[in-house]
């Protein structure tokens, strides 16, 4: 059974938008424009994606899937790179990281027969993995930068005691990974207790039996968890090196030569 929401009731969503809009108006939050603009923009974006997806789902999987995955990875790379624009090779590193994560996850899904190679399954699931990996890389980059800024003295102390950059940075990398992974660990701990995860909610609404919805949710949750970990580890392990020069001296963020 396929459920659908009638178009006229969708239009009534405007009532919901009116609530924040009225609040913004009464309290003069200066957000009226933002609320209207983001609602219109969001609606248009989703409509567009709906159209594109309908078109891609009709294409052969061997054409549609690579196109959509490439677009998703490129957009995610452009977005995540903003968090590390001071660092060299940031674009290519994130790009390689996201492609790697997607290849690993996709091979697992297909290899173990968890999903089939159809756009309907590969694209939304990959989207979740890529989106979460993008956020994790951004978080890791921000944290890495602030760790190197704040722990400068300790890093100098470690180097002056004879530590290699890898040794000296160990503590900062540990903190970075902690910060990047803890939200996901917490999410995994409370999954289903606080809120039903989005994918499961969607499947249940679409008429799928809860137990099947949970199976999908498990696949996606664990895939997200491991790809987020992989992304954060990858980006930290590659990027910390640029904070040092070949003479094992610590550089300032503004002195890190940007040649990437």
């Amino acid at each position: 059974m396929e459920r659908d929401i009638p178009t006229y009731s969708l239009l009534l969503l405007i009532v919901f938008v009116m609530i924040p809009f009225t609040i913004a108006y009464i309290y003069q939050l200066g957000l009226k424009k933002d609320i209207i603009w983001s609602t219109i923009r969001g609606t248009l974006q989703l409509l567009l994606i709906g159209l594109i997806l309908t078109y891609l789902f009709d294409l052969s999987p061997l054409v549609g899937i690579p196109i959509m995955l490439s677009v998703m990875i490129l957009v995610a790379t452009f977005h995540a790179r903003k968090k590390g624009k001071e660092l060299p090779y940031i674009f290519i590193t994130i790009l390689v990281g996201l492609i790697g994560v997607e290849i690993i996850v996709l091979s697992m899904w297909l290899g173990f027969g968890m999903i089939s190679f159809t756009p309907e399954e590969v694209i939304p699931m990959s989207g979740m993995v890529i989106g979460n990996s993008m956020v994790a890389m951004g978080l890791a980059l921000e944290r890495l930068k602030s760790e190197f800024e704040q722990k400068r003295g300790k890093l100098l102390a470690a180097l002056s005691l004879g530590a290699t950059p890898k040794h000296a940075a160990h503590m900062s990398i540990k903190k970075t990974l902690n910060a990047a992974l803890i939200p996901n660990i917490d999410q995994l701990k409370t999954i289903g207790l606080v809120q039903l995860p989005g994918m499961m909610t969607g499947l249940i609404l679409g008429g799928v039996a809860p137990i099947i919805a949970i199976k999908y949710q498990l696949v996606i949750s664990i895939s997200i968890f491991s790809s987020v970990s992989l992304s954060a580890i990858f980006i930290s392990m590659v990027m910390y090196r640029f904070f040092f020069n070949k003479q094992m001296q610590l550089l300032n963020l503004q002195d890190i030569k940007k040649d990437g």
Partner: peptide
């Protein structure tokens, strides 16, 4: 070798900067 050099030429910084 840089680590060996820093080992035999030890530096004490202005602030202690101890590891936690």
């Amino acid at each position: 070798d840089i680590p060996q050099l820093r080992r035999s030429v030890g530096l004490v910084l202005q602030q202690p900067h101890l590891f936690p």
